[in-house]
Write a protein that binds this DNA or RNA. Structure first.
Lengths: 342, 342
DNA sequence: GTTAGCACTCTCTTTTATTGAGTGCTAAAC
DNA sequence: GTTTAGCACTCAATAAAAGAGAGTGCTAAC
């Protein structure tokens, strides 16, 4: 499992060159471009060894070598040095964040934009599901004669709303009373608990009361029913069109469709995330369609919840750059959320 | 400018076959597939005429003919019979609308989904800019100690909100008083007028009053500053990957990037829209990137505002189907908005 | 253990033939 | 005058053949 110094150097050279050129790398090219003090023939012997060990493979007999999935894995595990963000990139990220600091969701969007711009891969930011946060506040507001707004605010300041019809004769005080009713019953409860049980109880309790209460209950239920979903921001998905290994339009279409459909996409990214950068290479991905792609990602905390952030690119990926960028972004984003939001 | 019966029949045959197969159409194929009571030689002569007149063109000498842009234009203007939605399609549209009827914006999204699914082209729905609608209602709501929500509701029920910091000691009644202040001053005014002038006046008038008022003014201004944008829903953009004429990945990327960026996209669709279906074929489009695509669109009314809806596909498009579908959708959507919303 | 040398392999590119769909033109038929 | 059969001709697309070149694996010498 452990390789000697020279083999490692050669493996690294193959990876670097292949990532850059997308072409198989030959022995001569390696001695020329990387200061190996040996001849091409020696490199050839070493490469033959590396192939036998499974770290390299040959598209056909008379071609150079390309790194195998196992080769990338070894590199990532045992040799890679993450490349940290440059000062310019840090400035850029700060600018992105500054500009869009007002709205909670905008922060994630900006981070995604930054990630895809800096890495040239598709980036994603998956927000923690809303259902874990707490009910803080419900307010019924009259908007028009016969219409009211049901407004629901969570402890992290997420706001949901929907309009309902109400009888014309109802007074603002009544609406306020109903709001208070809900607030007394639900304040501080987790949304998922409310959805699962509290709402039922409340419904029992309030049976045969006013129509508006029923409507409100229904509306709250409808609003909560969506809180299980995790919002996804994807940027730079079209970058894969630039990768020379993707020529098959039907394959591209399938991948882009996953990027388009949040529900599909979420299943592509592993659920269990740690706080450190994790990497799935090629067939390590569970998803059928992602067998030729790699995912570099990390979990991030927003208070007690956890979201996921990362990039997706071809297996022939600049892992060092991607890993460093994702890691930096994770840290800066966490800090930003802690300091500027709520 | 006017073609005799037989020439029209032949032009139509070429268009139908070419749209279906994406291959140049030969004289023999025409007599075989369409019940022309003449020989291939006759058709050849007619086709030569049509080519000379500019309605057909030949990729190379020994190929069949394909319709030129002018040919499509003639067909669309003088021969086309729009194909109305089938009963199943109408049912499907109803289902889409029923399911998503709750939220104003969802309606447009559903309509877009339907359009792209039925036509297999990319669809778009451009919403009228919010700024034309009227200020109905502003409410300051305390959420947390030191935080309040500024809530702005328009006459068509669009809701905008943002959180602001407020002094801890401020009372709910104060917030209500400030809300009332704004409401008295702004109710019924158009958002764009408020943004352009009223807000300035109000600022003068309220100078040196409480900090919260200032904050609120700033927030309202910030909210209104975005109301000039027209929201765009696009569906089925990836359908273009299926069209055989699009093989060049760089070209595809440029087109998809336009679909991704609302600001770019809006410029691709003509501004002046009537209430009937309009068609831009190939180079009739102003946009550089859309020279090989066609747009079938119509304007729709939502009260006094006007939005745009339509589909985008290759020049080799089923115009009859697209035009009929867009027209039906426009009518049904207008009716639905009128009856179910507000 | 390392390296020069060389035969060998296999893709990629270029060249050459072959095929076939489709045209345009001419002359005869209607 | 219009239509049609017939035929030579054109040109892309496909297939087959030839050539070039990058790179390997192996052998033998250092």
């Amino acid at each position: 499992m452990t390789l000697d110094r020279r083999k490692r150097k050669i493996l690294e050279s193959v990876i670097k060159d292949y990532v850059e050129t997308a072409e198989p790398v030959g022995s001569r090219a390696i001695v020329r471009r990387h200061a190996l003090n040996v001849s091409a023939a020696t490199v050839r012997n070493e490469m033959a060894d590396l192939e036998e060990m499974g770290y390299l493979e040959q598209p056909h007999t008379s071609a150079g070598r390309i790194p195998s999935q196992k080769g990338f894995r070894y590199y990532v595990d045992c040799m890679m040095q993450s490349e940290v963000l440059s000062d310019e990139e840090l400035d850029l990220l700060q600018k992105y964040l500054q500009e869009q600091a007002q709205e909670w969701q905008q922060v994630f969007y900006s981070v995604g934009q930054f990630l895809s711009q800096v890495t040239n891969y598709a980036s994603f930011v998956i927000l923690p599901p809303v259902k874990i946060s707490q009910f803080q506040y419900l307010q019924l507001l009259p908007i028009d004669s016969g219409q009211a707004l049901v407004l629901l605010v969570t402890d992290v300041g997420i706001i949901m709303h929907r309009r309902i019809d109400i009888p014309e004769d109802i007074q603002p005080e009544d609406l306020q009373a109903i709001s208070n009713l809900f607030n007394r019953a639900l304040r501080g409860r987790r949304l998922e608990d409310i959805y699962r049980s509290d709402l039922q109880l409340l419904r029992e309790e309030l049976k045969d009361r006013r129509r508006v209460i029923d409507r409100t209950l229904d509306t709250v239920e409808a609003l909560l029913s969506q809180t299980g979903e995790e919002k996804v921001f994807i940027s730079g998905a079209l970058n894969i069109l630039r990768e020379p290994e993707f020529k098959d339009l039907e394959k591209i279409r399938r991948i882009l469709m996953i990027f388009e459909e949040d529900e599909l996409f979420k299943d592509v990214i592993p659920q269990e995330v740690s706080n450190t950068v994790d990497i799935c290479i090629g067939r390590e991905n569970e998803s059928e369609e992602m067998q030729e792609m790699s995912v570099v990602f990390a979990g991030y905390h927003t208070g007690r919840e956890m979201g996921r952030v990362g990039v997706i690119g071809p297996m022939r990926m600049e892992y060092w750059k991607a890993a460093g960028t994702v890691e930096s972004v994770r840290i800066i984003m966490e800090a930003f959320l802690r300091d500027n939001m709520r």
